[in-house]
Design a protein around this nucleic acid. Structure first.
Length: 799
DNA sequence: GTATTATCTAAGTCT
DNA sequence: TAGATAATAC
């Protein structure tokens, strides 16, 4: 331990924080406002427990996301030292209980080498079931079916209970989907036959385990004498019950959360869990952390003015001693593309004016699709960035393909993996054959693997040529299976990558995408190698039970797969190990728990944020509002909110209205785009109706607002020239006489000498595009050749 | 069984 | 728009 003296580590905490740290016995609820030092309290609490002689192995800390768990682990390690930290049980609900199930699953009839299906696997399985049962995928949309089943599992409703529940059945009848209960049953049975669990099963089956095996429940109750749950407002019923059961013996349960930041109801999170904590534990002590240490007064108060529009909440008073700070800047642009440019330009300016680093900036959005416009603009302005979320490394096709071989070698009954690779790379086992195998499997109550293992024993009608190909495939998979327990992960993985022909296939594809796929495979193999070579110092959650439960030793491929099964975001390390200086792009959901000095929240438009799907009922809309609350409370120094008056959706331009959330912020905290000018054509409403908001009546926001370019407040470059406009913006730009920013584009031709504020003098060597998009390649001599967007470059023609 | 073309439809957030 | 699927040709 780092601290010899008790005061040392309590000194840095305020009164309430100290109380939250030292009250370690009995149930405790900590209501932690945004930026109130929540993580600090949790880590100090753990340190306090350890200092008072509690064994690290007896402390379980559950988080919600991998990122949160990672960050918490790091903070703990700095606080108490790495070796002690390693013995703590800490992880997401899913990963902790996946590991426990890995050890105990045989007690509930699951083999312990079960595969974990991700959402894509699960939806594919559902698609197959819909097809096999002759149902229409128009009526039974796989997404909907999946969500329905997921919802049931999160509430611990088994398929049997589902089918016996009159209310649920009636709902399905009235929505014209009477087969949902049956699909749920088939889905579970097929998962079981494939020895697979989906994400929800990890929680569901943990509950089954604790319900049906009291000895195991007792074992884990005594193992985890202290249970801490972060982001408790986001727990669903399945998680709630696990926590309740685990804590039943000692009741040393500490939940930390903020009802204002509950943003996962769509995933079954039940905000009542935190609202009702006092009912479950009447003797619970409650601590409210209300002092915000993160943000300026402007930001904190603006956030408060937003959240007070929600009815359903625990009253609290978040305040701060920090500086007043700058007003929240509102950016208005007329297209999503320009929104990107505007944000990029603002980042550029702030970087220059405030000596800020890239990593101090975050751009937050409601949907992943919005990242593209931002990325393009940042790329063109040579600002380094990193996009979090979206399609993760492990979800790429080539990675899933190779992993499917690994999965299959470990668990040949894994049907989704089998289907994925039985004909990839192509080996002449086509759709017809696969259909026949599926049919035979269904008729005989066998898995697909059991059928192909002995094809000739079944009446499939598959010809002898294809049979031979199937036999080769089976033999290959079996040979992989034999290698796994005998060898470490890397040689096996490499062998599989080569032997299946995946490497060759991708190597021969010389298209840029093909090359990148090949690189990705190499990267995955490097990951395996690292796993194999690392002298593993495992954290408690990764530690093995007394006897190995998976094939081979802890460096086998089986353990590698366990490690990555629940990683949906890739932990991108930077090559040279130094911390990357990059702008962060992520959804608001994944930004929860993080903070940045400069934050842009983009796409503040009706139907986007709040999302169209949430406008129908109060609960959903309040969740969107909490999401907005989360977004703005990420900012420390300066917050910028941006919206566009038109945006591409489904490949076509649609008009957008500013978000109602902009109206809800107390306007005294906003720095609105400057006052209207008579001549400003943006004032003209006939192009789109950004100004009238129908039922929302007079929109103070749009009434007061008028757009003047935010990004151009510096000396103007030479006289603008009329520019051709890109065709998809024709209507808007012709109305406005060209993009507001494009007005400043100088008329350039090849060979012109120009002056740039940063790069100095240069010569135009190439011109590309027209209008606002015009790019020039300029040779700045010693400063190199740069490609610049003219609308931003602020070039002065000098010759 | 495979390759190419035509047509459709979806972008909501995370484990 | 773009990725996914269905239809068609080979």
């Amino acid at each position: 331990m780092m601290f010899d003296n008790e005061n040392d580590y309590l000194k840095g905490l305020n009164e309430v924080q100290q109380q939250a740290v030292i009250n370690t016995e009995g149930p405790v609820m900590i209501i932690a406002g945004a930026g109130s030092g929540k993580t600090r309290v949790i880590t100090y609490r753990i340190a306090h427990l350890l200092k008072n002689g509690v064994d690290a192995f007896n402390i379980l800390t559950l988080t919600f996301t991998n990122k949160a768990s990672r960050e918490m682990k790091e903070r703990i390690a700095t606080l108490i030292g790495g070796s002690e930290a390693r013995n703590l049980w800490m992880g997401t609900f899913h990963s902790v209980f996946a590991k426990i199930l890995r050890i105990e699953s045989e007690r509930i009839g699951y083999q312990n080498n079960f595969t974990i299906y991700d959402t894509a696997d699960a939806k594919n399985l559902i698609k197959s079931l819909i097809k096999e049962n002759g149902l229409s995928d128009e009526v039974y949309k796989p997404n909907l079916v999946y969500n329905r089943i997921s919802g049931a599992k999160n509430n611990l409703v088994s398929w049997q209970a589902y089918q016996n529940n009159k209310e649920l059945v009636a709902e399905d009848y009235s929505s014209q989907k009477p087969q949902l209960g049956k699909l749920y049953e088939l889905y579970q049975k097929r998962l079981f036959a494939s020895a697979a669990m989906d994400f929800d099963d990890l929680l569901f089956n943990t509950n089954v385990l604790f319900r049906d095996c009291p000895d195991l429940l007792s074992k884990y109750q005594h193992k985890f004498k202290y249970v801490m749950v972060d982001e408790y407002q986001d727990t669903n019923y399945a998680q709630y019950l696990i926590v309740k059961k685990l804590a039943a013996a000692f009741e040393n349960v500490c939940v930390v959360g903020d009802d204002s930041q509950s943003i996962y109801a769509f995933r079954g999170a039940n905000i009542q869990n935190i609202l009702n904590f006092k009912k479950d534990y009447p003797e619970a002590k409650t601590f409210a952390l209300e002092q915000n240490y993160r943000s300026t007064k402007v930001i904190v108060n603006a956030a408060n003015s937003i959240i007070k529009n929600n009815q359903n909440q625990i009253k609290k008073n978040v305040w701060t001693d920090n500086l007043e700070g700058e007003k929240i800047k509102v950016l208005r642009t007329f297209s999503d593309t320009e929104e990107g440019w505007n944000v990029a330009q603002n980042i550029f300016d702030i970087k220059n004016n405030a000596q800020a680093r890239n990593k101090q900036f975050a751009i937050l959005y409601r949907t992943n699709a919005q990242s593209r416009a931002m990325e393009e603009a940042l790329r063109k302005m040579s600002i380094d960035y990193r996009v979090y979320g979206g399609l993760s490394f492990y979800q790429r096709k080539e990675i899933k393909d190779l992993l499917a071989y690994f999965r299959l070698a470990l668990n040949p009954n894994d049907e989704e993996a089998l289907k994925r690779v039985i004909n990839y790379p192509m080996r002449g086992i086509g759709q017809t054959t696969i259909d026949r195998i599926v049919l035979a499997a269904g008729e005989n109550g066998k898995s697909m693997w059991e059928v192909i293992e002995n094809v000739t024993a079944y009446n499939t009608g598959i010809n002898s040529g294809t049979t031979a190909k199937i036999n080769d495939f089976v033999a290959m998979i079996k040979s992989f299976g034999v290698m796994i327990p005998a060898q470490e992960a890397y040689p096996v993985a490499e062998h599989i990558a080569k032997h299946t022909g995946i490497m060759r296939e991708l190597y021969n594809d010389k298209s840029p995408e093909g090359v990148s796929r090949y690189d990705n495979i190499q990267e995955l193999l490097n990951g395996v190698k690292e796993f194999t070579d690392d002298d593993l110092v495992r954290t408690a959650t990764e530690q093995l039970p007394e006897e190995p439960v998976l094939a081979g030793n802890e460096k086998s491929l089986a353990y590698f797969m366990q490690d990555i099964a629940l990683l949906t975001d890739s932990e991108q390390k930077d090559e040279d190990g130094k911390e990357a200086d990059k702008v962060t792009l992520m959804t608001i959901h994944s930004a929860k728990g993080l903070e940045f000095p400069y934050v842009f929240v983009v796409g503040l438009e009706e139907n986007l944020f709040p999302s169209q799907m949430t406008l129908n009922n109060r609960e959903d809309l309040e969740e969107e509002r909490r999401l907005f609350y989360v977004a703005i409370t990420r900012a420390e120094k300066k917050l910028m909110l941006s919206y566009a008056t038109s945006r591409f959706k489904y490949g076509q331009l649609i008009n957008c209205e500013p978000s109602r959330f902009l109206d809800e912020i107390d306007q005294q905290f906003l720095d609105l785009p400057s006052a209207p000018k008579k001549s400003n054509l943006f004032d003209d409403d006939e192009t789109g109706g950004w100004g009238n908001r129908g039922s929302f009546g007079a929109n103070s926001f749009t009434k007061k607002t008028n757009y003047t370019p935010q990004s151009v407040n510096k000396p103007l470059p030479p006289k603008p020239v009329p520019v051709a406009v890109p065709k998809n913006l024709t209507r808007l730009t012709s109305n406005t006489g060209g993009s507001a920013v494009a007005d400043e584009i100088p008329n350039l031709s090849l060979g012109n000498l120009v002056e740039h504020a940063r790069f100095g003098n240069g010569q135009i060597v190439a011109l590309e595009g027209t209008g606002p998009n015009q790019k020039a390649t300029i040779d700045f001599g010693a400063n190199g050749k740069k490609q610049l967007i003219l609308r931003f470059a602020k070039l002065k023609v000098v010759g």
